[in-house]
Design a protein around this nucleic acid. Structure first.
Lengths: 130, 130
DNA sequence: CATAAAGGTTCCCGCAACCGGAAGGTCAAC
DNA sequence: GTTGACCTTCCGGTTGCGGGAACCTTTATG
């Protein structure tokens, strides 16, 4: 199967698939003409990567997850630990963003947004006591 | 004022301050020996940048905000529009992250995380029907 | 059958916003 | 005078690709 069909199948751009090969994640065979040739196992991996990346795992996490996926003697604790760390990261990011959201919401709400220069947002940004 | 004192004052790393100069945000004067010399106006700008970046505005947004800050004929609508767009962006990011959070929370919760290979997380990542 | 379009290949640059570190000049203190 | 703490510029790396050039192969069409 050619790369564009594989891309269609797994939902990843061809560029991304080539990149994953370059960093050693999925190495398809090659035809006589040099074209990449994806078999069913390659496609499984690509779909796995698509899904993992879609859940926000870093590419390096995906590499580890993929090796655990293929390791039938894995400990589920290893998988769980990666997922838990990622979840904690997301929790932190959400908390940060919510804090920004609150501040910005107040500022945007206070600014009348007309053609006068008077602006609580700028005033806040220029305040000395942060 | 030397760069490390300026850094101390505004709360930005010296590396960052040099970078901001390189991209034309804050251009301090130079002493005879070539050292950067920050005056009170430069410090104001740096503090403004520190605060704006801290609220998550992109450096390019900060550039615009800084020019509005210095433009006493600005329209507050221009400031508000930037802040509003940024806020919308944050709202979207929070929504995305919350969705991931929900999914990951379920998966992490379902995995017992022991030394057996049986793992709902891996099974989900390997599922065909996403 | 010739040719054009659509696919494939490699390679290299660019993004955002810096950080780390090397090589070298300057300054204050002991 | 020399040590150490500054300062300078420059170069490379980060994450995860995307865009595009230059070139080859396959397929469709007149």
């Amino acid at each position: 199967m050619n790369i564009s069909d594989a891309a269609q199948d797994c939902g990843l751009p061809a560029k991304t698939i080539r990149y994953y090969e370059e960093i050693g994640l999925v190495r398809p065979g090659r035809r006589a003409n040099g074209y990449r040739d994806y078999n069913e196992q390659d496609l499984h991996k690509l779909r796995f990567l698509q899904r993992s990346r879609g859940l926000g795992f870093s590419v390096e996490d995906c590499r580890t997850l993929l090796s655990l996926y293929e390791d039938h003697n894995r400990a589920s604790a290893d998988v769980r630990q990666i997922a838990k760390a990622h979840l904690d990261d997301i929790d932190r990011k959400i908390a940060e963003l919510k804090s920004l959201q609150t501040t910005l919401r107040h500022l945007v709400h206070q600014c009348h947004g007309d053609d006068r220069p008077d602006c609580p947002i700028i005033e806040d940004l220029a305040r000395q006591d942060h």
